[in-house]
Design a protein around this nucleic acid. Structure first.
Lengths: 339, 339
DNA sequence: CGCTACTGCCCAATCGTTTGGGACAATCGT
DNA sequence: ACGATTGTCCCAAACGATTGGGCAGTAGCG
């Protein structure tokens, strides 16, 4: 009988003693591949062991397993900020996929600060993660190169950098879509709120937008900003000060766009009528805003799941190609004066 | 010399061999309390060991440590949805505090579904967490009682249930604040969007509001809804169908409030002028909305950190008292027709 | 000088798994 | 009938850390 039915959780040994076999046999039966199992014990022994395992409510001790196998099945995820719904959604995708692969994940905020990125990464490493997902890659800087040089398996998500494997949205194309839309509406005097200068998302979206306009022979002023409402607000104020005033503003992120709407209103102008505003990511809020926001939809959840899967293949020793998802323009009242 | 300078990470043994002492000595020096250290080795040995530790870039193997000590220093956190900025912010607080206490955390979504709550909790337990933080407590149901009966250390955050230790906002008072505000503005015909019927947050906020109005001799219709924009939108449509029509709506959550703003607009009414709308949580967006939203501020981040600290004291064998934070009304244009 | 009390270490067991290598019988092929 | 094969298991050594209990040598004490 099990020595300790109540006190401590069942171990391989408890089962082994109950079933009258060796712990190695139990281990092979409970965890081996089907063929291993067959080789490890007879039909009846296998059944008996399995029965005892459920009866004793056996759960393998992950620490023991990790210690022995030198694999933690743990993935660290770094994001600028979890309270940014975009990153939270991407993380949900990562976590979903990880669960399906039997991996555990944990997130940490880096606040887009290089020092924190380093510190958090070291922390993750000291927790012996098998790999990392960076949602906060900076396109400048050498941090990721150093990590790669140390042979740490990782992938990027949302932002890309260097030629490290990444899963992103085709941000350049997304910016182009907005430009196309604006041009169709006849906007010739426009501005773009470009986000942080180190994030490929903002940079690409801006570039796609600007390039498209340039093809139409129009130069577009861009101003960088934080990715939040306050950042967007301030940036929009700047743009609105220009003369002649822009009739449309593209913010590379929904929150910045909301801030821009606020700035337009504060300037005594009617958002959507006097100044069209478009955002990016098609956050759940965009559709429900008092003035519904035109935005570019990016598959955030899916990007997260694909990133995790890419990481799995990296862990498998492969060197997978980066992936880029197609964005989709969702037109709403904030760019439709007539509506 | 270390047998393997490059290949594998340094262990106590590597250091022991380098310094010419036993691993037990190294262990005591590196991890013991100051007095232990003094008893374990001479001044010079201690220095030598410490020196080797940094030189070899030693990081304790958490799996070995957890296996031996039967303590994982891991905390599981359950939330309805991480892409809800309220919960994400609370989690950030939890994570911050955990880091300060040398604990690691990981989050999981339960989507407020009992089956997921159970499954995720079991998962956390099988990962051998030291304790849990539930951000998704249901006030009905017996799940938490069962967990408590199993002696699993946990605390609740954001919502309370039964008399399990919890860290919440004084939601009842928060609801009262809004009622007070509405009454001062002269609203006699009002409605409340109450959120999910199993969440103490919504229930308390509604109760505080309704009770306050009842004291003024006015009955308030309440309608439950999901905590998101769509839920708020639908609920507001219902309320707006009533005759006479309410002149003010209290949504127990900012997202529901935003949905309500949308519904008001869709009904051909002017939000803030024809129908005042107030929310709850004072999400960063509230202030930046085209029509800034009156909301009740709750200290989300702080609630998270306090919850973790409460859990720490539970882990220390104590039975701490629940904590309730004071909310604060932030009045903005959505309830100020003249503004 | 004999006894105790430190000081400064080391030994060895233990946590729960995994895994290479046998051991011992029964069965098979020839 | 004899060696080879196969089916069933067991042994024992890790993985890296913690921790109770030694055991020398030196110092202090009467």
């Amino acid at each position: 009988m099990a020595r300790q039915d109540r006190k401590r959780p069942a171990t391989l040994r408890t089962i082994a003693e109950s079933a009258g076999v060796d712990v190695s046999t139990v281990s092979r039966v409970l965890n081996g591949a089907p063929e291993d199992v067959a080789r490890a014990a007879s039909r009846e022994t296998v059944d008996a062991i399995r029965e005892w395992a459920v009866r004793l409510d056996y759960r393998p001790n992950p620490h023991a397993k990790s210690l022995r196998t030198a694999r933690s099945n743990l993935i660290g995820v770094l994001v600028p900020r979890l309270s940014d719904v975009v990153l939270a959604t991407i993380y949900e995708g990562v976590e979903d996929a990880a669960a399906r692969h039997g991996l555990a994940t944990f997130v940490m905020n880096s606040y887009d600060r290089p020092a924190e990125q380093r510190a958090r990464t070291e922390l993750a490493l000291s927790r012996r993660v098998d790999g990392l997902v960076f949602g906060d890659a900076h396109s400048d800087g050498t941090f990721l190169d150093e990590i790669a040089a140390r042979r740490v398996p990782f992938v990027l998500v949302s932002r890309h950098a260097g030629d490290h494997p990444s899963v992103t949205c085709d941000d350049y194309r997304g910016g182009g879509l907005v430009a196309e839309h604006f041009l169709q509406l006849g906007h010739e005097r426009v501005g773009v709120i470009a986000g942080e200068p180190f994030a490929s998302t903002g940079l690409d979206r801006m570039a796609g937008f600007v390039d498209h306009y340039r093809e139409a022979g129009i130069d577009v002023p861009a101003v960088h900003s934080a990715f939040d409402t306050t950042g967007g607000h301030k940036a929009a104020e700047n743009l609105l000060r220009q003369r002649p005033r822009p009739t449309a503003i593209f913010a590379v992120n929904d929150f910045a766009a909301i801030g821009a709407l606020g700035a337009v209103r504060d300037a005594g102008l009617r958002p959507g009528e006097d100044v069209a505003v478009a955002g990016f990511n098609d956050t759940p809020l965009a559709a429900e805003l008092p003035l519904p926001l035109t935005s570019v939809r990016s598959p955030m959840h899916e990007m997260g799941t694909r990133a995790l899967e890419l990481l799995v293949s990296v862990l498998g020793g492969q060197k997978p190609a980066s992936e880029r998802f197609d964005p989709e323009l969702v037109v709403r009242a904030s760019t439709l004066p007539g509506a």
